[in-house]
Amino acid sequence: SAVVMEEGSPGEVPVLVEPPGLEDVEAALGMDRRTDAYSRSSSVSSQEEKSLHAEELVGRGIPIERVVSSEGGRPSVDLSFQPSQPLSKSSSSPELQTLQDILGDPGDKADVGRLSPEVKARSQSGTLDGESAAWSASGEDSRGQPEGPLPSSSPRSPSGLRPRGYTISDSAPSRRGKRVERDALKSRATASNAEKVPGINPSFVFLQLYHSPFFGDESNKPILLPNESQSFERSVQLLDQIPSYDTHKIAVLYVGEGQSNSELAILSNEHGSYRYTEFLTGLGRLIELKDCQPDKVYLGGLDVCGEDGQFTYCWHDDIMQAVFHIATLMPTKDVDKHRCDKKRHLGNDFVSIVYNDSGEDFKLGTIKGQFNFVHVIVTPLDYECNLVSLQCRKDMEGLVDTSVAKIVSDRNLPFVARQMALHANMASQVHHSRSNPTDIYPSKWIARLRHIKRLRQRICEEAAYSNPSLPLVHPPSHSKAPAQTPAEPTPGYEVGQRKRLISSVEDFTEFV
């Protein structure tokens, strides 16, 4: 048969007729292969192709491409040299491709048809291009793949890379869960390890502090508590009631339409708007009261037996805890006409967050109470924005700035309102402590230090009264110190430094 060459192609190359033996071998191979691939376009007849790359030819070592076609129900084999250009295909004639002069020997084609199974398996396991790669995943090629499931790999992101949580363990979102698992493993320790309690022994800490320079003076030496005195035992138990972190309780009120001037209507609300609910979820963490331990979680007086509701929101960081007394989460009882059960919590909070959804101005004093010092007013606006402002009593104007209003988005509203309420509550605590000038409020841990110092002074006084020969370590507060001759004046800087060093040991009130 003659071949018409394309323009620009090399000279004529004689194409030899395939021997009958080659056709029989390739026909047997075509019957084993699956003929249901995917359909081509209507211009080209339905056909199945599979590209198999052999590394070497037997005796020649030339890479070839073998295409199996099922045109007219008769499979045909096409061998081509890759750099050459194939002729145009037609549905009426068999596929013809040019070969190099080196394939002119018909014996070479017979060798190609009689490829060993080793070469076929190696060509099938190679990388296939384009559409033949999808075909190689079918059941027909499963014989050339190794048996057994593939090893499982770690989760992959859409980009093909490992997620960040699997790369950096410290930033993994499941870090707290692993800590819980470690605690569970520790709890399952053997009885021999049960006595080993991690941490620092208080006796060891005391020993280090006792021999430090801070205890060089007799006034700073630790003293032993009497065991037989019940009054001192009660004082030590009272110390446990003062937490070592700051605590805040903040009221949250929802004002519906037409309720801006009605205290009873505001306290009777059992739910609010959708934006109000989203605002609550951002204030803190939802907790169930019956599962809380009052000595570990500050509840601000809420009952854990269901008297004040089942849930509330709280927030904490390293040095403070805040609980929100939310009116809509507290039960509304029919027998309580004046809502006294709610007001006994909300009316005693220094700061209230008022979500004013009424469309009218909310005035300070609508919720009557002796300790309502500051109101954080949240007014929802259009386009997911809110107006946040402050209202306070006249005696609080020096501590709280009420002249600045803020426009905040719904997303950042819980954070801004919480921070403003916490700052206002700190100012309210300082303002409330002014009624007792001898006990200015600095912080909870300073209050613990003052309680310890008062307890020490009482013990020293009782020891001096029981044994008059012992001198008083600290003179009583009601006694007057003996007159001392004025010492020589020293520079102001040295006096300030000495006073600062003494105050650092005794108390921190002056620095606050």
Rank of each mutant, 00 (worst) to 15 (best):
L470M: 12
A424H: 03
N467Y: 14
A265C: 05
V505A: 14
P380R: 00
L449N: 13
L364Q: 14
C460E: 14
P226K: 09
S403E: 08
L302F: 11
D357L: 00
N467Q: 13
Y441A: 12
T247K: 13
L413F: 00
A447D: 13
A265R: 05
N220I: 13
D395C: 12
T277P: 01
D318R: 04
V376D: 01
Y276W: 03
I377N: 05
Y383T: 06
H345R: 10
Q237H: 10
A427S: 04
I440T: 13
M396D: 02
D318M: 06
T312M: 10
P489A: 14
A483H: 11
L286H: 07
D341K: 15
G365M: 05
G284R: 06
P471R: 06
N227T: 13
A483D: 14
R456A: 13
L286K: 11
G300P: 14
L267W: 05
Y274W: 15
M330Q: 06
E218P: 06
S231P: 12
R454C: 13
D295K: 07
D439Y: 12
L238V: 06
L413C: 15
E278W: 03
D217P: 15
Y276F: 05
T332C: 12
T485R: 10
A251S: 07
A405K: 11
G359K: 08
R418H: 03
S469C: 08
M426A: 02
G492I: 12
K249S: 14
E218W: 09
R498D: 14
N348M: 12
T490Q: 11
P491M: 13
P243C: 07
C385E: 10
C292F: 11
V505D: 14
I446T: 07
I326G: 04
R448C: 07
L455S: 09
E288H: 10
L381V: 03
N227E: 14
N467A: 13
G306R: 11
L470C: 13
P468W: 15
E263V: 01
N227F: 07
T332D: 07
D334C: 13
A251M: 05
L390W: 03
D291P: 09
S504M: 09
E218H: 09
I266E: 03
F371Q: 14
G369A: 11
N372T: 09
N436S: 08
P243H: 05
Y276C: 00
V351Q: 00
L470D: 15
D318G: 07
D240Y: 03
I287M: 11
L329V: 04
Q391L: 07
Q230N: 08
D410E: 04
V378M: 02
Y355L: 00
G359T: 04
L299A: 15
D395M: 05
F324K: 01
A481W: 09
L449W: 10
N372A: 07
H345D: 06
T332R: 07
A447E: 15
F232Q: 08
F350M: 07
Y245M: 09
C314D: 06
D341I: 09
N372Y: 04
A487E: 13
H451K: 07
M320S: 14
I242N: 07
P475D: 15
A463D: 12
Q497C: 10
K333V: 12
I287Q: 10
Q230V: 13
R458K: 13
I377L: 08
A417H: 00
I440E: 07
V416H: 03
G301S: 12
H248K: 02
R450H: 07
Q310G: 11
L280G: 01
T277C: 07
D334M: 13
K343N: 07
S358E: 01
L225M: 15
H432M: 09
Y493N: 15
Q230L: 11
L224R: 07
K290C: 08
E270D: 09
I440R: 07
K480Q: 14
Y313S: 06
H338G: 15
R234H: 13
H375I: 10
A322M: 10
A463W: 09
E218F: 14
T281F: 05
V255R: 00
G398L: 12
Q457C: 05
V388Y: 00
H432D: 05
R339F: 15
I319W: 14
N220C: 15
